[in-house]
């Protein structure tokens, strides 16, 4: 198992943001966390990446226990996140943003090859290398944020609401790219409010509601599940 989140609870300002969350991610899978706003999806991803630490429970990545590590060590271990709202560095260029994705890397040659790979996924980034990231559109920033995350050559890619604020056409584009990235062999955890999109991409899914996992299973099953259909897929 690549990622094993064991029964974690995260406390935020005297309140439990997420409680007893357990998630298992096998190598090569796309696993999705769906749920409405405030369900705790972002908190879960932040905790995996080390921006929060669970008060109880453990998180294991490959053979390493990571739940108490600082974010830079978790990045080094091979987990990268594309955060909610992309969070590109607005006053840095596209090229600089991508360089930051590779901050810890020392292997110049492989890095450059990875950069070419990113440009293949996102040709627009290649032509806009000198542009200030803050002046780009939402869709372009999303691509930049994803490219940035890929620059660390992660084993596990965490995507937090990639479709947020994007037009349907852009959504489809991003979905295609997620498929491509997946077929390259990367493992992905996808957090989405857009349950339809998420369940179309993923093999496995977890449903979060007010901080708890209420349902889990194969994406197929979840798609056909009556409750899920009513709550998240528009009946």
């Amino acid at each position: 198992m690549l990622l094993n989140v064991k029964d974690i609870t995260v406390h935020y300002n005297k309140v439990d943001a997420i409680r007893n969350i357990s998630i298992e991610v096998e190598e090569g899978e796309i696993v999705t966390l769906i749920g409405s706003n405030g369900a705790g999806k972002t908190t879960t991803l932040r905790t995996i990446s080390g921006l929060n630490h669970p008060t109880t429970g453990e998180i294991w990545f490959e053979d390493q226990r990571i739940d108490q590590l600082p974010p830079e060590k978790i990045n080094k271990a091979g987990i990268a996140q594309v955060p909610e709202n992309r969070r590109v560095f607005p006053y840095m260029t596209v090229a600089e943003n991508l360089e930051m994705g590779a901050f810890l890397r020392k292997d110049e040659e492989k890095m450059n090859r990875d950069l070419e790979g990113v440009f293949k996924h996102f040709p627009i980034l290649k032509s806009r290398q000198k542009q200030m990231a803050g002046t780009m559109s939402g869709g372009e920033q999303q691509m930049l944020a994803m490219g940035r995350a890929l620059m660390s050559n992660p084993k596990l890619l965490l995507l937090d609401e990639p479709s947020l604020g994007l037009s349907p056409i852009m959504c489809l584009e991003i979905a295609k790219i997620i498929r491509d990235i997946h077929s390259e062999g990367r493992t992905i955890v996808l957090v989405e409010q857009n349950a339809r999109l998420a369940l179309a991409l993923a093999q496995k899914g977890y449903v979060l509601e007010t901080g708890n996992i209420v349902l889990k299973g194969e994406a197929k099953e979840l798609r056909d599940n009556e409750e899920v259909k009513k709550a998240y897929l528009g009946g």
Partner: peptide, 20 residues
């Protein structure tokens, strides 16, 4: 040095890139 600028612009995003 670019890491310093990244940290100034968005510390969380910077941390996610491996910047301590």
């Amino acid at each position: 040095g670019k890491g310093l600028r990244a940290c100034a612009q968005d510390p969380d995003a910077a941390a996610l890139q491996g910047i301590s």
